[in-house]
Amino acid sequence: MATQHSRAAARLMISPAVILLLLWMIVPLAMTVYFSFLNYNLLMPGAHNFIGFENYKYFVTNPAFITALINTLVLVGGVLLITTVGGTLLALLLDQPVWGQGIVRILVIAPFFVMPTVSALVWKNMFMNPVNGLFGWIATSFGFAPFDFLSQAPLFSIILIVSWQWLPFATLILLTALQSLDSEQVEAAEMDGAGPFARFFHITVPHLSRAATVVILIQTIFLLSVFAEILVTTNGGPGNASTNLTYLVYAQSLLQFDVGGGSAGGIIAVILANIVAIFLMRMIGKNLDA
């Protein structure tokens, strides 16, 4: 039984972590909120006067904002679609008895450990480059004109690169979930005469749905903040064609030095992420009770 004494000790042990995270979360966030109401540009030193919601108005009515918002949703949605569908299929495949299963798993997981700047540059130059890239060579050897991925379909190309990085994550988690599927249940269904499709849709899919939800929510958190891949491949361009919200806020604040406008954008990004976070927290919280 926990005593009064051990409770106090426990509180003492928890407090450093809590205080640090509290500082990390509240101080900068409060500063961002504060800046977002100021007319504050690093290039114009001096008065930072209070301008109310002007920055928000400016940021939201900027045509780049709508583009960035749509790009963010397309990027997140596209990567989620590719990784969850692909990950489910791959997990089902890898759940079968395969010779050299250990090595196959290692090969499939590997892209997850590649740092974002490396994978983006390798794909950009060695695969998607129309002159020297492998895709260009494949296209020309079949008699097609090489396709300039990053200037003709920048967002799609970035979706491909990011999907390659996250497919292993989805696969690994769905595979872990599959392996915890009760084989007796499957056998019982088989004896009752359920065919492979019935077994898949009535046993496997419901079993996987929890893991799939976790995959979708966690990936969404990370995908809303895709940054390095855009920075080293397209710089958000051409125009704003591959600018997402994270990149737009970065450009507004650190390239145009507009602290006020950038802060307003940052707060909008926080609000968007929170909507997703609420669902994720509920899922994980439920698991904590179990």
Partner: peptide, 21 residues
Amino acid sequence: KDVLMWMLSTKMLPPVGVLIP
């Protein structure tokens, strides 16, 4: 449980939200 969930929520904060400060 609340403390754990709250800690997790700090991870959900997008980095651009605190980039400038």
